[in-house]
Structures are given as C-alpha cells and as structure tokens.
Amino acid sequence: MTADTSMTTVKVTTEARDRLAVLAAEKGQSIGAFISGVAERLPTAAELDERDERTRQALKKFGIALAISERAEGEALWAALDAGDDEALLKDPDA
C-alpha cells in the first residue's frame, strides 16, 4: 500500500460496522485503521498464486514435488475444518 492519504467511504450493514468496531477496539485501532491493516495483510489471488509457485519451486529443491491440484485439496481441507468438520483430517482425499 502507498502512503496516499486520500479517504473514501465504504457502506456496510449496521451489524458489520458494529463488529468492525469491536474488532478494531480490541486492537486499539479505529475502524478505518483496522480495515486498512486487514487490506494490507490479506493476499490477493495473484499473490497467493505467486506464493504457491515459489513454495513449489523451493520444495522441488529438496526433492518434493507438489502438484497444482494439491493446493485445491489443501484449501478444501481448510474450508472443511473452518466449517467445523473436525473429521476432515481423518478422511482420505483420494477416496
């Protein structure tokens, strides 16, 4: 992110605003500072693809070859775990 100081308004639901206020307060920040921090830290899809490729290349140096499809399998596992499926760790992805 650049040091641009121009500001804008983002419309969210009242519920989202209230939640953002709580999250920001827990970090000792304003809502604007909190949202800016989140935007700076969350990678874009392109950044994730780049990171994925760098990881694959680094692992290749150690003789570990990961297929591109394994990223999708990993993302599916995280989604299942986030959804509360604790049994997802025990499931065979090839089954």
Rank of each mutant, 00 (worst) to 15 (best):
M1K: 01
M1P: 04
M1H: 09
M1Y: 07
T2W: 00
T2M: 05
A3G: 07
D4T: 01
D4N: 13
D4E: 12
D4I: 04
S6H: 08
S6E: 10
M7E: 13
T8H: 06
T9A: 08
T9W: 04
K11L: 07
T14W: 08
T14F: 00
E15L: 06
E15T: 13
R17N: 06
D18E: 15
D18I: 03
R19Y: 12
R19H: 06
L20D: 11
V22E: 15
A24Y: 08
A25R: 15
E26H: 07
G28H: 08
Q29M: 15
Q29I: 02
Q29R: 09
S30R: 05
S30K: 10
I31M: 09
G32T: 01
G32V: 00
A33G: 08
A33S: 09
I35G: 03
I35Q: 00
I35V: 15
G37E: 00
A39Q: 06
A39F: 03
E40L: 07
R41W: 06
R41A: 13
L42Q: 06
L42Y: 10
P43C: 01
T44I: 03
T44D: 06
A45Y: 09
A45C: 02
A46H: 07
E47F: 04
L48N: 11
D49F: 02
E50Y: 04
E50Q: 08
R51E: 14
R54W: 01
T55Q: 14
T55M: 13
R56C: 01
R56D: 03
A58F: 09
L59E: 13
L59Q: 04
K61E: 15
G63A: 02
G63Q: 01
G63L: 01
G63M: 01
G63V: 05
A65V: 14
A65K: 15
A67Q: 14
I68W: 09
E70H: 04
E70Y: 02
A72P: 00
G74R: 13
G74D: 06
E75K: 05
E75F: 07
A76H: 02
A76E: 15
L77R: 04
W78M: 13
W78I: 14
A79R: 15
A80N: 04
A80C: 06
L81T: 05
L81S: 03
L81V: 13
L81C: 10
L81G: 00
L81H: 00
L81D: 10
D82K: 10
D82A: 13
A83F: 07
G84M: 11
G84I: 13
D85T: 07
D85Y: 05
D85I: 05
D86V: 07
E87M: 07
E87L: 09
A88K: 02
L90V: 03
L90F: 11
D92W: 02
P93F: 01
A95K: 08
